[in-house]
Amino acid sequence: MTPILEARGLTAGYGPSPVLHSLDFAVPAGGVTTILGANGAGKTTTLRAVSGLIRATGEVRLAGERIDRLAAEDVARRGVAHVPDGRGTFVALSVEENLRLGAYTRRDPGGVARDMERVYGLFPVLAERRRQQAGTLSGGEQQMLAISRALMLRPSLLLLDEPSFGLAPLIVREIFRIMRTVNESEGVAILLVEQNASLALGLASRAYLLETGRVVVAGSAAELGANDAIRRSYLGY
């Protein structure tokens, strides 16, 4: 079966010198893949290259079709929802307006209304705050909003950039539980970038370890979890 996302020789950066050096990775259809790595390894850059926020060379295929030449807005229109680092909240807009924006490209008002109720079901706290300005939400609530906004696109692939960043463990666990639900019950594939390796490996089936812009280890999540080097540097036991 064709993977939902496949990157070959992906090279990208911000100036003349690339940050990513010819990455190969894939997300199986309906699966969860994680990219691990320390700060500055190139995790965020990888997601930006996939979603078209920065220019990249190499091939990126979404369900077999090339998307590496597309602008970010067109990648989004093909069903790739990117939850960026820093969450990308529209702070001056209300929670509900943030969600409506997530569904901006959709032309099925009925479906949008149903999805709105669905994400409110997943994150009841957002339903309570639907009229509130999004900038007034707590960090955890903003992360939930960011994920919900992405889900409103009805994506086939979700790109998540460090959803655990700066949040209390309890909230992080809640968010990961809901992402598992989204993946398992709705078949949304996920490409997850994380520093918290144990959480990420618990959710993912495939995993890659990134060091200074290169894939140094690739394999199943179980294999990476058992790798001594990774255990020592990223899992801490």
Binding site: L53, A71, A72, P84, T89, F90, V91, Y104
Partner: peptide, 11 residues
């Protein structure tokens, strides 16, 4: 308000 996030939702 937020051009980057806007592009990511397809605007």
């Amino acid at each position: 308000q937020n051009p980057v996030s806007s592009r990511l939702v397809g605007i």
